[in-house]
């Protein structure tokens, strides 16, 4: 299905409706001394707005590298990446920062909240960097925290919250700018089973509201929430199937 779509509207075709994520012939390698590690060998991937995609694969297969590229945190050695129709190659640091700020919400395995800073202020931070005024910031941060069910914990600092609560604050921070894409790298990797279900239910809910979600995971239960599963191995895409096909396989 996805392969056909990429053929139908090849990237860069004028007038074609661009996909949200369009990666073509992506290569990324790291040099460690004399050794060269090929994290991505030749990846072509297209994700439409509104999809819920799981990227799965064994450890070291290149999932996080792919996520860093999609999140404009890292650059390709070769190939092309269009995010929402924008070619992000060779852009200045500040431009990339602005793209991340406006288009992407990050959810990390280690939550990555700022220490000694209240939940509310953590959620406000992307809006601070976007230059949103104080009052508007407050309002939207409260709204996002309400949405993740933490409206009553706004004054708590990360150290005063459980892992699941911290991850929900992180999700609130990711959605507060109303980005086109939510990118989650092992969002439940540091959580127990019950909390994992709660966090995944929250992501499902956000998907139902029309957000595009890309989740990286190696837990099959987490992958099962997605509508489409992309499997990566050794820096290459191994399979790319709808979840119901996966389930019957």
């Amino acid at each position: 299905m996805s392969a056909a779509e990429i053929d139908a509207s090849g990237p860069g075709v004028p007038g074609a409706d661009p996909a949200l994520i369009q990666i073509e012939g992506a290569r990324r390698s790291y040099e460690l001394g004399d050794e060269v590690v090929h994290a991505l060998r030749d990846v072509t991937l297209r994700i439409e707005a509104g999809e819920h995609v799981a990227i799965m694969g064994p450890s070291g297969s290149g999932k996080s590298t792919l996520m860093n590229v999609i999140g404009c945190l890292d650059q390709l050695n070769e190939g092309r990446y269009l995010l929402d129709g924008i070619d992000v190659r060779d852009r200045a640091d500040d431009e990339l920062a602005e793209i991340r700020n406006r288009k992407i919400g990050f959810i990390f395995q280690q939550f990555n909240l700022i220490a000694r800073t209240s939940a509310l202020e953590n959620v406000e931070l992307p809006l601070v960097y976007a230059g949103v005024g104080r009052r508007e910031r407050r309002r939207r941060a409260h709204e996002a925290l309400d949405q993740v069910g933490l409206g009553d914990r706004t004054g708590h600092q990360p150290s005063e919250l459980s892992g699941g609560q911290q991850q929900r604050v992180a999700i609130a921070r990711a959605i507060v700018t109303d980005p086109a894409l939510l990118l989650a790298d092992e969002p439940t990797g540091a959580l127990d089973l019950a909390t994992t279900e709660a966090v995944m239910a929250l992501l499902d809910e956000l998907h139902e509201q029309g957000r595009t979600i890309v989740v990286i995971t190696h837990e099959e239960e987490v992958g099962a929430h997605a509508a489409r599963v992309v499997r990566v191995r050794d820096g290459l895409i191994d399979s790319d199937l709808p979840a119901w096909v996966e389930a019957t396989a």
């Binding site: 500040d94 920062a97 991340r100 990050f106 700022i114 931070l125 960097y129």
Partner: peptide, 11 residues
Amino acid sequence: IRKAIGARRSQ
């Protein structure tokens, strides 16, 4: 983290 969520250099 700050850079990931959109902090510019000057910030």
